[in-house]
């Protein structure tokens, strides 16, 4: 007995193939549209900004004349801020994830904590700015400093890092853990020598995305009150500073049209900064994913 009637299948084959084609076309258009937008954006920014982009632009401070304006203070400020955000957010984030995945018992309180962390990832950045202003700038009296801004930004990206690290740790096969226990390893040994190395690529992917977000965020810095007009570099953790997105925003608002081009040059620098940061992280990640 035949369960499949060939003639019916053949009759439907054409529509099915067409359906397949149309879906494929739709998804392709989606991808191309996103790419096209990106290309337009990049071309526009690069053509506008390239004229102002030279070594002087990187090594001089902002100025009232667009020709002499440079991005030194903002670039160095952003690098320093990254030096604070990366260790603080990653150490706190990964520790939290290890606790939640490996140690925490499955009970209502821990479920509540997990749910809240996921929710925090969706809180608008300006709210974190207000939190930073209240706690770090005012209550802890850190002022409008590198440290206050770095902590605020770390808080902002912490939920994203925690969630990513949790997923990565959860994805480590149970068999590997059990094999480790079977060999007589303690819990801590299993975590540091089996689970974490296997989870590193996933943790890094999440962290890269989160750190990229921190470097481009403006709203929390505006709320904290980070200055834009300054002609000195931070000399301590409590020193005032400015950051790339702040400087770009300030230029884009100026009446003189030339400052728009200077802002574009600033955006190019910001993008290069991001690309370099991401490449380093991807390089480290690939090193480890090869080993497992």
């Amino acid at each position: 007995m035949r369960y499949i009637d060939d003639s019916v299948v053949m009759k439907r084959m054409k529509t099915r193939l067409n359906k397949n084609k149309s879906w494929k076309a739709l998804f392709l258009t989606g991808t191309l549209f996103a790419l096209l937008c990106l290309v337009i954006l990049l071309v526009r920014i690069v053509t506008q900004g390239i004229g102002y982009l030279d070594w002087d632009f990187i090594t001089s401070f902002a100025s009232r004349s667009p020709e002499r304006a440079g991005i030194k203070a903002a670039l160095i400020g952003s690098i320093y801020m990254m030096c604070i955000i990366a260790p603080v957010s990653m150490i706190l984030g990964v520790s939290t994830a290890i606790y939640l995945e490996e140690y925490a018992k499955k009970n209502k309180i821990n479920d509540f904590i997990r749910m809240n962390i996921s929710n925090l990832a969706g809180v608008p950045s300006i709210v974190f700015g207000l939190l930073g202003l209240t706690i770090f700038v005012r209550a802890l009296a850190l002022g409008k400093s590198l440290l206050a801004a770095g902590f605020t930004m770390s808080l902002l990206i912490l939920p994203v890092i925690i969630v990513a690290a949790q997923e990565a740790i959860r994805a480590v096969p149970k068999e590997q853990r059990e094999a480790s226990y079977g060999m007589g390893a303690t819990k801590w040994q299993t975590i540091t020598r089996v689970v974490l190395p296997a989870a590193i690529p996933g943790i890094l992917t999440g962290s890269i995305l989160a750190l990229s977000r921190a470097i481009g965020e403006t709203a929390p810095l505006v709320v904290i009150g980070i200055p834009v007009i300054l002609r000195f570099l931070p000399d301590s953790l409590l020193s005032e500073f400015t950051a790339l997105p702040m400087q770009i925003y300030d230029w884009a608002k100026r009446p003189q049209e030339e400052f728009l081009y200077v802002a574009s040059a600033g955006i190019i620098i910001l993008m290069l900064f991001l690309v370099i940061m991401n490449s380093i992280a991807i390089f480290i990640r690939n090193k480890f994913s090869k080993r497992y």
Partner: peptide
């Protein structure tokens, strides 16, 4: 007012390079 302040801070640096002036634009 910020553009005036920025210009002032810029030329002030030539006179007093060790004074650290900063200003926001809130």
């Amino acid at each position: 007012v910020a553009p005036i302040t920025e210009a002032l801070v810029e030329i002030y640096e030539e006179e007093q390079p060790e004074v650290r002036v900063s200003s926001g634009v809130s």
